[in-house]
């Protein structure tokens, strides 16, 4: 579980200023075909809640999990609702004990026996002759043995892709802040954002309503890979503003990789990346400019 409190890059950038420009690097960090799930809290309280979710997810799905917040959220003082005590027990995921191994007669570390693309594991120190396995960075088969066999290698790669797909439904769902999809929509225009952009965007939507009489629907994204609700939200609107705090439209880029081709052209970007937290006036002005208001 890796928490990245994003500050301004590239390199050391503006080290005491805020940005959201590590999204793509966190998503694909490492060699080869690598993808990491990312959780995106939008408030101090949500940092507390999604950190717990990230630990559970890391063990349930047996994967590194990134939690991306930003300097504005991570270092400045915020008013917050009190944190709630966790309602669920810790999730250690799929672990076999010595008794399980005795009953099963052994196990294959990376074999998908349950159809969820996640193998069972054992903890080091489990007292059973069949408990051990070898964790390696190099190619392996489903029994954790080294292999360069094309089919065995590809089977592992395909299982990992499948595991990543399954995470869409397990990650924190997006929050509909205003309007919604299909019959719940209030406008043909929608916007998406994540993290500390939330407060400024919420205020901006009020300004837009007040000044231009326009409703804009808003969905706050809380995780990648994207939940199907995000696809539905985009499909339910004529155009979608992606509001984010980086130069290269990284959230919009991830969306473009994920959405069907016909939906991609709906995306428009509002980008803020001067090191200061984005404010409502900036978003409102950019929106008005792009809408020709």
């Amino acid at each position: 579980m890796i928490i990245n409190v994003q500050r301004t890059g590239p390199s050391t950038g503006l080290p005491t200023r805020t940005q959201q420009a590590d999204l793509l690097s966190a998503a694909f960090l490492s060699h080869g075909d690598t993808k990491h799930p990312i959780l995106l809290p939008g408030s101090v309280k949500e940092c507390f809640e999604l950190t717990q979710a990230a630990f559970d997810l890391a063990e349930r799905m047996q994967t590194p999990v990134f939690l991306l917040t930003d300097l504005d959220l991570g270092m400045n003082n915020w008013m917050s609702e009190p944190f709630d005590y966790p309602a669920k027990p810790l999730d250690r995921g799929k672990i076999l004990t010595a008794e399980d191994l005795e009953r099963l007669g052994g196990f294959a570390r990376y074999r998908d026996v349950d159809g969820d693309a996640v193998g069972w594991r054992t903890l080091p120190g489990t007292r059973h002759p069949k408990a051990s396995y070898f964790t390696r960075g190099s190619g392996h088969n489903d029994a954790a043995k080294y292999t360069e066999d094309p089919e065995e290698y590809q089977a592992v790669m395909d299982r990992l892709a499948q595991k990543f797909e399954k995470m869409r439904a397990l990650l924190p769902a997006p929050v509909v802040v205003k309007g919604g999809s299909s019959q719940n929509r209030k406008s043909g225009i929608g916007c998406v954002a994540y993290g500390s952009t939330d407060c400024a965007l919420t205020e901006s939507l009020d300004q837009i309503k007040q000044r231009y009489g326009k409703d804009v629907d808003y969905m706050r994204i809380r995780a990648w890979p994207f939940a199907h609700e995000i696809h539905d939200f985009v499909a339910s609107h004529d155009r979608i503003y992606v509001v984010e705090q980086d130069r290269d439209a990284q959230l919009a880029s991830l969306l473009k990789l994920d959405l069907p081709a016909a939906q991609v052209t709906k995306l428009r970007s509002i980008l803020h990346y001067n090191g200061l937290p984005v404010d409502a006036e900036f978003i409102t002005a950019q929106f008005a400019l792009q809408e020709g208001l």
Binding site: A131, S132, F134, R136, G137
Partner: peptide, 8 residues
């Protein structure tokens, strides 16, 4: 072979 291993 009966021990856990991690090749970093």
């Amino acid at each position: 072979s009966r021990s856990h291993a991690f090749n970093g």
